[in-house]
């Protein structure tokens, strides 16, 4: 009997190995193409950051870390870092709060819930050029919808794109508008996966809605929330479209992506590439710490 079992197990093992080998072979061409498409530009970009060159004539000479030195002395780079941080943090917080609030609302049994769910996805599907142009028209002068609404409350016209602070506010608001649908969908799925028994138990124990949410519901949402914070921060730092299209490349809204591109294409390929490499490293570190945080949150919940 044991010999028969051993033979059966062995045959099963062989089949598994064959299946794995087949799967790998079938996936290899895609992995290879993706690797080339992603690895090659990455490696080439890193190499450019150690060379002197322009777009018309890259790879002129090896200059070691000179481009990194020039980068860290460039005030435009630090302005881009500052704006990227403000834009990312502001955008993540606002879009998360909006997404969370709406997710909690739409988890209740309210009228027109389905229609509202569909409606709230719209910002996500509007092409960026259309959305950003519309927002620019709404914000850029005294006749725009935003200033018209502000005037109802006695607020003087704000020329959002002429002042660095207001430009940052405008960019964060628009970023949140673009991003909250993703937060909403993800958080709604998370809420629906939670066990309602815990909430009911908390209610029975006399906990109010806020205490139940803060002590029971939210901790369970932390793992997913952490992932969303990481992803949205990375996407915000990498967001070229929102600040560029909204402000027509205003110097008040130049983040690391715009800086890297402008520097690489128009001025110095090496310095632009160095900026991109620095961004990659920073985002990589950020992702690592955030994933550690997620692991801790997982353990807690």
């Amino acid at each position: 009997m044991a010999k028969k079992d051993a033979k059966a197990i062995s045959a099963s093992d062989m089949q598994t190995r064959r299946d794995r080998w087949l799967s790998l072979n079938l996936a290899l061409p895609s992995i290879f193409l993706l690797g080339v498409a992603q690895l090659y530009p990455l490696v080439q970009g890193i190499l450019y950051s150690f060379q002197r060159g322009k777009t018309t004539n890259p790879s002129q000479a090896w200059v070691g870390f000179d481009k990194y030195g020039a980068l860290f002395k460039d005030p435009d780079f630090w302005n881009a870092v500052r704006f990227s941080i403000i834009f990312a943090i502001g955008g993540v917080i606002l879009s998360y709060l909006l997404g969370l609030g709406l997710a909690l609302l739409l988890s209740q049994d309210i009228p027109m819930r389905t229609m509202l769910r569909v409606g709230f996805i719209v910002p996500w599907v509007i092409p960026p050029i259309v959305g950003m142009t519309a927002w620019r028209w709404m914000m850029q002068d005294e006749n725009g919808a935003v200033n018209q609404m502000l005037s109802w409350f006695g607020v003087d016209t704000i020329f959002f794109f002429n002042d660095p602070t207001w430009t940052a506010v405008a960019a964060i608001v628009v970023k949140a508008w673009r991003s909250f649908p993703f937060m909403l969908v993800s958080l709604m799925a998370t809420l629906q996966s939670l066990d309602p028994v815990l909430d009911e138990a908390a209610a029975i124990d006399g906990a109010g809605k806020w205490k139940t949410f803060w002590n029971v519901t939210f901790p369970q949402m932390l793992p997913m929330s952490s992932i969303l914070w990481v992803l949205m921060t990375i996407w915000s730092v990498n967001d070229y479209e929102t600040p560029y299209l909204l402000t027509n490349n205003s110097p008040n809204a130049r983040n690391l992506m715009i800086f890297s591109f402008d520097e690489a294409i128009y001025r110095d390929l090496g310095t632009g590439s160095a900026a991109a490499v620095v961004t990659l490293i920073v985002l990589g570190i950020l992702a690592y710490f955030m994933l550690k945080l997620q692991k801790k949150a997982d353990e807690l919940s």
Binding site: Q140, D141, F161, N162, T247, N248, S250
Partner: peptide, 8 residues
């Protein structure tokens, strides 16, 4: 025009 910074 104050919008000179952003319009085409």
């Amino acid at each position: 025009n104050p919008t000179a910074t952003t319009i085409s």
